Simulated assay, not measured.
Amino acid sequence: MLAVAALLGGFALLLAWPVPLALSRALWPSRSPAIALALWQAIGLGGGLAMIGSLLVFGASPAGSLLGAARALLPHLVEGDIPPAFGVIHIAALTLAAGLAAHLALNLALTAVQAERERRRQHQLIAILGDPMPGQPRTRVLAHPIPLAYCVPGIRTATVLTNGLVDVLDEPELRAVIAHERAHLDQLHHLVLLAFRAWHSALPWFPIANRAERSVALLAEMLADDQARRVASDDALRRAMLQVGSGGEPGAYADSGGVIPDAAMLEARLARLGGPGDVDDHPNVANRAMVAWAAALIVAVPIVSLLATLGPIA
Results as ranks from 00 to 15, higher is better:
Ala85Val: 11
Ala294Arg: 09
Asp170Tyr: 06
Leu7His: 03
Leu37Ser: 14
Leu297Val: 05
Ala85Met: 13
Gly154Arg: 08
Gly274Ile: 00
Ala183His: 07
Leu49Ala: 10
Leu106Gly: 15
Gly130Val: 11
Val166Cys: 13
Ile178Gly: 04
Leu73Tyr: 06
Gln136Lys: 11
Ala112Tyr: 14
Val216Cys: 05
Thr95Pro: 08
Ile43Pro: 01
Ser54Leu: 02
Ala183Phe: 04
Asp131Ser: 15
Ala12Thr: 01
His200Tyr: 04
Thr309Met: 12
Leu194Ala: 12
Ala240Cys: 03
Ala209His: 02
Ala36Pro: 00
Met1Ala: 01
Leu174Asp: 09
Val285Gly: 09
Ala92Val: 15
Arg272Asn: 05
Leu191Thr: 10
Ala26Pro: 00
Leu203Cys: 08
Arg230Tyr: 07
Thr111Leu: 07
Leu27Lys: 15
Ala149Phe: 08
Val285Cys: 15
Asp225Thr: 09
Gly247Glu: 14
Leu39Tyr: 04
Leu169Gln: 07
Ala143Thr: 12
Thr309Cys: 12
Leu14Asp: 10
Leu73Asn: 04
Ala264Tyr: 07
Arg138Gly: 01
Gln243Glu: 05
Leu191Ser: 09
Leu273Pro: 02
Ala69Asp: 12
Arg31Thr: 04
Gln136Cys: 12
Leu218Arg: 12
Leu55His: 06
Val304Asp: 10
Gly275Ile: 00
Ala202Val: 04
Ala42Arg: 06
Leu194Gly: 13
Asp186Glu: 06
Leu2Lys: 08
Pro312Trp: 11
Ala22Tyr: 07
Asp167Trp: 04
Leu56Met: 11
Val291Gln: 15
Leu194Gln: 11
Pro83Asn: 10
His76Cys: 04
Met1Arg: 00
Leu273Asp: 03
Ala70Thr: 02
Met265Lys: 04
Arg156Tyr: 07
Ala202Cys: 08
Gly80Trp: 01
Arg214Glu: 14
Pro137Val: 06
Ser61Lys: 03
Ala60Cys: 03
Gln124Ser: 10
Pro276Phe: 09
Asn287Met: 15
Ala300Gln: 10
Phe58Ile: 01
Leu39Cys: 02
Leu125Ser: 02
Val78Thr: 12
Leu203Met: 07
Ala5Gln: 00
Ile89Trp: 12
Glu181Phe: 02
Gly47Asn: 03
Ala286Phe: 13
Ala5Cys: 02
Leu27Trp: 14
Val141Trp: 08
Ala38Asp: 13
Phe206Gly: 00
Leu297Ser: 01
Ala22Ile: 06
Pro145Glu: 09
Ala308Gln: 06
Ser61Gly: 02
Ala240Val: 03
Leu174Gln: 12
Ile52Val: 15
Pro132Cys: 03
Ala98Gly: 04
Leu110Asp: 15
Val301Cys: 09
Ala158Asp: 11
Thr111Ile: 02
Thr162Lys: 07
Met51Ile: 00
Arg117Met: 05
Val4Arg: 07
Pro204Ala: 14
Ala263Thr: 13
Ile298Leu: 10
Gly245Arg: 01
Ala26Thr: 05
Pro207Arg: 05
Pro147Glu: 07
Ala105Gln: 09
Leu106Ile: 12
His90Lys: 13
Leu108His: 13
Ala22Gly: 08
Thr309Tyr: 09
Leu45Asp: 00
Leu106His: 11
Ala42Asn: 10
Gly87Leu: 15
